[in-house]
Structure formats: C-alpha cells, structure tokens
Design a protein around this nucleic acid. Structure first.
Lengths: 324, 324
DNA sequence: CGATCTTCATAACATAATGTTATGTTGCAG
DNA sequence: CTGCAACATAACATTATGTTATGAAGATCG
C-alpha cells in the first residue's frame, strides 16, 4: 500500500509534537486539514494511527513505525529546501575539507584564507586525517574535499583525484645542526642523534620505516612524537633532532631560516599529493571553487618548490650550501 | 522554498532512470503527468533541472542535488509501504539479534531454531559482539535484540534489559585431564598447563584477569586464542589446556562427555546475562516473540543449570565426581 | 461532579493538484 | 535525411487539499 510521502511527513510531525493542532501550525496548514489527512490514512490502512480516545495523542505501534519513515522524509524535504536556498545564494554555505596534517598546516590553511578573501560568504571547516579516514569521510558525505597523498595505485572506485604535487621527502634539522658541518654522513651519524616520529598512521611514518630499512638502521632514538607541524619546527629549532618531512613543507617554511634540509639521499615515495572527492557527487559550487583555487596555487608553486629542491647540494663533498 | 515530497521522489526516479517515460512507468503514472510536474517545479525554482535540449536527460547541478534528497524520500516511502505490508502479515520479516559469542553458539542459535519452527515466516539474522557494539547496534537500529551480560550498573538510559541467567564461570578442561586426578590443586598446577584465552573484548577475558589476580598468578601460558566455542571445545578435547567458560555453556555441551569442569573455586562476576533492546522502540511483533521465547526457555533451563552446578564437588577431598 | 477550555473530528465549500488521452515537437540513431 | 521514440503541451475529468464554521470529546479546575 502506497502512502503519499507528504502524509508520512505530516504523521511524523503529529507524533513528534503529540498534537494535531501544533503539527498543523508547524507544517503551515489548518488543523482540520491535517486531521482529515490522518483520518483518510487510517481508513486506507484499516488501523488506527493513534490510540483512540486518548489525549494527548498516543501513537500505536504502526503509527510509530510509519512516523519513523515520515521523519526521514520530513528531514530530507527540509534539506531540499535548504539546498534550494543555498543554491540561490550562490554557495552551499560550507566546504568541509580535511587532509594530512602537515600539508594542511603548511599550505592549505593559507590557501583557504586566500580563497575566502575572494569568496567572503563561503565558510570552510578544516579537519585532519589520513587516507582511510579521508576516503571514508568523503564516501559518507562528511567531507567535500580531501588533501591526501596517493600511491601508484589509482584512487578507489568512485573517487576523483586531482594531482597537485609529486611526493618528495627530506630529512630536516635545525640550521646550525652539527651534522651539517660533516663532509660525509654515515649511518652512525644518523643513529647518534634523536629523532621525531611522524604522526601514527601518516604516510610519513611509513616513509621513515622505509628510510631506516634502506640505510640499515633497525632502530632510531625517538625522543618526540605527536606534535603538529609548528611544534615539530619549534622542537627542531631547540634540539639537534632529525625528522623526515615533505620537502615542500620545509619550502613553505623557508622564511624561517632556523630549519633546513640535511643533505642526505633517502628513498623517495612513489606518491603524489592531490585533491580527492567523489566522482559522481552533485557539484557544490563552493567546493568546486576551493578545489580549483588550490590546484591553481600549486600550479604556481610547483616550479618554485622544484627550484628550491635543486638548490640543495645533496651529499656531495665541499662546502655545505645553505638554501637561499 | 517548499517542494512537495512526492515531487522530490519523482525527480529522483527520473534522474536515476534517465527517462521521464521510464520513471513514470516505475512510479505508476503517465508520462505527461510526470513531465508537467517537472516543468511546474522548474518554473517555481527558476532553474532547469535538466540540461535543456539534451537527450538522454542530463540533470543539472541543482537537479542532482535535489534528486539526492528525493532518493532518500523515495526509499523511506518504499520502506513505509514495506512496514505496512509486514504489519498486516503479522511480522516485520526479520529479527536482527546479536550477542556474546559463546552464549549465542551454546544456547541462542538453538532457541532461534525452535522459535522459527513455530513462526515459519520470520527470518532471523544472527551476529556477534560484546556490550559496546551491542549497545551501539541497538541504539542505531542495526539490531533488534542483544544477548549480553550486564553488571551491577543498570543498562544505559534508553535500553530495556530482561535478565535471563546469573553469571557463573568455571574452569573447563577435557574429561581425562591430569589435574582431575589430583586431590588438591595448587596455583602451580594451574600455571603448569597451557590456557586458551577468551576472545578480545569479551567479559570472559576480564574474568580471566580477575581470576589470575585472585590466585596470585601474574601470567599464564596462553597457547591458543580467537576460536569459536566449537573450536575451544575441540581444542580442549585434544589437549590438556584449561580455559574459563560460563558454566551454562558447559552445561549446554554436557552430552559431549569429553569436556568437564575443573573443580577449582574461582571468583565470580557480579553479572547477569539478559536480553537488551531499546526502551521506547516501536514494538516489532517478531522481535517481541523471539525475546519472549528466549526468556521462557531460560525460565525452564535455570533450574537444570543450577542443579548441574550443584552436582560438581568443588575443591573437596575424596573422589572426583563426574557430572551426570 | 459540573463547568469551562482546549483539542480533535466533521461538514461544506472553493481552489488547486493531478490523473488521463490526444497530439505536436524535438533529439537521436541509422 | 528519415523515421522513431521520448518529451512537452492541451484539454478534460477526477481527486486532493486548502479554508471557515461548528459540533464532539477529553482534560482540568474549582
């Protein structure tokens, strides 16, 4: 038996308010109109929706069950109205973006600021995560955009991925670090100093393990972990610690001359940073705008970052060149 | 702007099928009726819902967005129809029940079978979990019933709990176990033999830790873990291993004389096994029926289990009494 | 227990919505 | 370029749904 969707929504309003009069007011129609709708529905159903002769209205089992579906319909209808309102306002109100922490901190937060100068009526909610949570967030519509590195394997089915920066890591240290004065670095040199561990679950942590394996180190002296990018930089400045960072992140921080690149060749991840979203999702103009802004900015930055990388003298004899 | 819920559902059908004609057929109305509805909606909206002059129909951004809400409405409406159909048929089709693994295996699966002989048109979906997942499953309407032990603290607000069996644990072993021949058991005796660890997250695991603490054992020799009840029984039969089990579970397996109770006094949990569900959920007749069946069966079994417990000679000198 | 008030149910009427068939228009495929 | 199928529009009939008016019924208060 087919029930008109509007009637289910109206039933939900009555069950929620406990009153035909209140529900009618809430729905913007007259009390007799709603009363008759319920009566007609009960007739078609052959069952009462409310316990008869009881005030306040108390729904029967079938009344409650149908009202549950009606609540879903009511909510979807309300959201549809909101969708129309936002569409007419030229935005969908809020863009929800998340990404791997260091890139979000080093680049994306600034780009969001730039974008919002151009689009003053769009709000942006930022959060953090790694690939699994980011994919889940997008798939379940808790996120509009994700900034994530992705490996050689394509994005999972249903996701679109716009590459913005090839992955390249470096070992970072403070500018006056003793190892910068050595002509040739050995494995022992790297073991002798404390390390900062990347955040659990992050691709950088996997990179660190790969680095350790490649240079024969089975264990390093981790003295600090769990910090944000700023904390890591601050910690590096105060200690002789080492850590693995994306080169672009150090580049983004280049004006702060207290942290630099230790010129040691390390294995590089076959990964690209990019913007991930659902393939077939209805396009949200605000999210589209932010994604395009981020892609354009990285188009500009890519060459600068490349030049910055090339200015580092990697593990060669002679003078240690400070990046300009 | 308020859009009639039926129109949103109809829009979803058109977007999904890509055809006004197909959608009209699916919705049980004529093609011109649906075409006019869409036209009137576009007029009120002031935006096309489909790219104009294109075949097959290709929805615009706002068309897709609204169709997404309409899909939810369509689905809720379909479920409402299903609810009416099930209600009229005297059942809601499927009962979703989950519980702690060993009780589900030892008792509930058999009781489900008994119940379904009496109610041949009701389907039961069984799954496993411990208290946190069971509460979450019920709260989010992924489960109708849960079989779980509950402590002295009452069920969380919003849940109803029907006690069916007080908690009582024993140490289980194979019938010819060497420790059964000893007149008096020491802590060392229990240390000398391998143990099966209960499933992670299970109350039995907590019980095992409490047992270890009470008898001064800081560590036991866990040789096996992660098995189902049947695997545990099979493993016990083949080895001299020990494990902690609910006494009722051993009782349920009493016809298989290869596993028995090691008569050692252990601390008992202040817990009761029971049936948990939402307090104010609309009553599903099938779930109500299954819950009542389970409660009735345990009413019958409680005395038998008690008698079985009393037949074991606990840690006394003299002959070791084999349970009858 | 009776009176009063509020909520729900029903009637009558007017308007809007929505179903149909018929038919013209338009896009796409061969 | 032609034919076919899908979409758009018109006309008509029926159903749905809005309103105000008013009676019935339940709950509360004195």
């Amino acid at each position: 038996m087919k029930i008109d969707e509007k009637h289910l929504a109206q039933l939900a309003a009555v069950v929620e308010t406990g009153s035909v009069t209140d529900a009618a007011r809430q729905l913007g129609l007259s009390q007799p109109a709603l009363s008759r709708t319920l009566s007609m529905l009960e007739k078609r159903l052959g069952e009462p929706l409310f316990q008869q002769g009881r005030r306040p209205l108390r729904p029967t089992t079938i009344g409650l069950q149908l009202a549950e579906h009606g609540r879903i319909i009511f909510e979807a209808s309300r959201k549809a109205s909101e969708t129309v309102r936002s569409y007419r306002a030229g935005s969908v109100g809020t863009v929800r973006i998340a990404g791997v922490p260091f890139f979000m901190d080093a680049f994306i937060s600034r780009m969001i600021g730039e974008f919002q100068v151009l689009q003053p009526d769009i709000r942006v909610d930022q959060s953090y995560g790694n690939l699994p949570e980011l994919e889940s967030g997008i798939a379940s519509n808790r996120l509009d955009l994700a900034i994530t590195p992705l490996g050689i394997v394509d994005a999972a089915r249903g996701f679109a991925f716009t590459p913005i920066l090839p992955g390249r890591n470096i070992v970072a240290c403070r500018t006056g670090h003793p190892l910068l004065r050595k002509r040739r670095l050995s494995t022992q040199d790297l073991i002798d100093y404390p390390w900062i561990a990347p955040l659990p679950g992050s691709p950088l942590l996997a990179d660190l393990h790969a680095i350790l394996l490649s240079i024969g180190m089975s264990e390093i002296n981790v003295r600090y972990s769990g910090g944000s990018l700023l904390s890591v930089f601050n910690y590096l400045e105060e200690t002789d610690a080492l850590t693995v960072l994306p080169h672009s992140v150090v580049f983004a921080h280049r004006k702060d001359r207290n942290v630099t690149v230790l010129p040691v060749e390390i294995p590089q991840p076959a990964r690209t940073l990019g913007i991930m979203r659902l393939s077939d999702a209805p396009r949200l103009p605000a999210a589209e705008g932010l994604a395009q802004h981020i892609a354009a900015r990285f188009d500009d930055l890519r060459q600068l970052i490349k030049r910055h990388e090339n200015s580092i003298v990697w593990g060669m004899s002679g003078d240690r060149t400070t990046p300009t």
